[in-house]
Write a protein that binds this DNA or RNA. Structure first.
Lengths: 357, 357
DNA sequence: CTCCACACGGTAAACGTTTACAGGCGGATG
DNA sequence: CATCCGCCTGTAAACGTTTACCGTGTGGAG
């Protein structure tokens, strides 16, 4: 781990000036003989350009930050998986920030842009506060926000459309003949919780179904909360024939309880999840789920940022990614997704490859 | 996005030299009056230290790289989730590299250490080639390898113990009275595949069970491969009473086929997966799975690297993380993990929180 | 043979910090 | 009142690049 060679070392060994070395390394026009000498010296010394010094001079780090609450969350993970290759292809490294859903941490990340250790930032804020908006207005590097931002905010912005997503699910359930569709939601003071609750009510109206408070349960976004809520629901309203769950974990909890209660899925109760995570395809019965396009949002955000980094000072752009309904066995029935004669008749999905050892 | 203030701007405004500014910002002894002036100027200008210039001078970037094949893989993700907070707490940023399981990419990452854009690296190589060893020997920054490395390699190293892991699983199955235990493995030219195959054979021997080639199937590490392999297996050897699967995805495929074939799990056939991913707890029946301690390995690697960064030139260390068997319904039976009276009697796990909208 | 143009390459400044060194000023001491 | 000692602070160099600018040497043309 001795000090590596610098451009000076090479210049000395090749008997030329550091300027010539730099020119050769950057492919600027140089005499053939000089090129040869410099290359030879660089090879022998195992020279590698110092990225820090280069960044200082060029004012570009070729790094981009991605900040979200928690990589463990499948939605963020899906974004990350799309963002990474896009950036890599463009020659950027990816710096990862987990903010643990703490607003101060998010602000700190925005502030740290002033340190200029990255050329740009993609951020998924938990919720957008006044402080966020202030920091965004004076950010020292281009930022793309994934999530909704107040009208007029001067920042590139990629949104999902959970309203349409909920509607897709309810239309699907309605088409299957379900009429007593309950909602198992997350906390209403979160952005997704509020949006999904409102969308549910609205979609019911459009389907000419009555809104019934008894059919709505609030818990947290985890499996145990879903289970608890559905247990209560079954006790209060044994006649429900469909469950709209605010995410896939809640839906898994719902499946647990329905199974324990002897209700068949989907014959007695159809279940729809949300986010279309790996878990949806893995569960049994496999779970119909609304995809809010996390992957697509990640990709779009990365592309917006790259354009901004290369190009210019255009007005902020807003991209809205449409939702998609992934229909599986929990609504479509057991005919869906079966192995017969060693052949699988459902959707295939690529999981992660094993890497232990 | 105008050019931010530098210590020069501050020096001018405060009427002092840049040296004084630097001293104040670094908390070196300075007259109270000067501190006041500098702080005031810095505040008014919204000054933030330039990390690049600082790194150039101090030869420390406060960044660490983590390189693995694919963040989508739950095993790597588990590592990442542990590595991130440890580094963050120590004031390091995390640069993420996905190598897509391409050896050249891994070598490129090792080479890029010469650019000095990070202070250290944690790497999970797909397999360790001659080229790896050469690069490791001359690496320009401390490296910690997760995975096994030939004896004598001078590098910090965190290992799993899949041999013991497989043995844990087979002992468990044996204790449940199972005697015809099949293995559904991944390709033998991968490190995990080879290790698990050998461990299976060895463990069978120790249990005085015969090794029967018909009971071993090779496919890839995905769900569809698992399904295919188990379908063949059932045809060839309808009398099997347990399945050891080389990872959780394979095990899910196995569950699909067993269900389709009308075999009860675990009454007729017990199933064990490997890696103990989220999917294991999500599936139905929930899946008994061997954890190879991905999370612990990630944490250990991060801690080793930090020590190395702070401290010194001790000899390379090897940490081996013991495996653990997570027993669930696919072997322990339906009594495990039930909701009764709204209470859950199984293991609870925290999934990701929803973050869309 | 002289002059000019041009290609090439060297010198030095700059990017924004940190830090070794030296100078200045004030106070304490003789 | 003179001297010395310390505390602060300023000057400048250094980290490893890139690049503007200028000088030198070569070849060709007149």
């Amino acid at each position: 781990m001795a000090d590596g060679p610098t451009i000076n070392t090479i210049a000395e060994r090749a008997g030329v000036s550091i300027a010539s070395v730099s020119r050769v390394l950057n492919g600027l026009p140089t005499r053939q003989e000089t090129v040869r000498k410099v290359m030879a010296a660089a090879d022998e010394l195992g020279y590698v350009r110092n990225a820090v010094a280069r960044s200082l001079k060029s004012r570009r780090t070729h790094q981009v930050a991605f900040a979200m609450a928690d990589v463990g969350n499948p939605a963020y993970l899906a974004m990350l998986r799309q963002i990474q290759p896009v950036l890599k292809a463009a020659g950027y490294r990816l710096v990862l920030h987990s903010t643990d859903a703490v607003v101060e941490d998010e602000i700190a990340v925005l502030h740290s842009l002033g340190e200029r250790y990255v050329d740009g930032l993609i951020m998924v804020p938990l919720r957008v506060t006044e402080a966020h908006l202030r920091m965004l207005a004076t950010a020292r590097a281009p930022v793309v926000i994934i999530g909704s931002v107040p009208d007029g905010t001067r920042v590139d912005n990629v949104r999902a459309d959970s309203r349409t997503g909920v509607r897709l699910a309810l239309d699907h359930l309605h088409a299957l003949g379900r009429r007593r569709i309950a909602l198992v939601n997350g906390p209403l003071d979160t952005v997704p919780g509020a949006a999904r609750g409102a969308a549910y009510r609205e979609a019911l109206g459009d389907l000419d179904l009555p809104y019934d408070e008894d059919l709505v349960r609030i818990g947290d976004f985890y499996r145990a909360d879903g289970a608890r809520a559905v247990a209560e629901l079954l006790a209060a309203r044994p006649d429900i024939d469909a469950l709209m769950c605010a995410n896939d974990l809640i839906a898994l909890g719902a499946l647990d309880v329905l199974r324990a209660a002897g209700r068949r899925v989907p014959e007695d109760v159809a279940v729809v999840g949300m986010d279309d995570t790996d878990l949806a395809a893995a569960s049994w019965p496999s779970l119909t789920s609304v995809s809010l396009g996390s992957a697509e949002r990640g990709k779009a955000a990365a592309e917006l940022l790259l354009e901004r980094l290369q190009g210019g000072e255009s007005d902020p752009r807003v991209v809205t990614v449409p939702p998609r309904l992934a229909v599986r066995a929990s609504t479509a029935g057991p005919a869906y997704g079966k192995y017969t004669d060693g052949k699988y008749t459902g959707e295939m999905h690529a999981g992660g490859k094993e890497g232990g050892a």
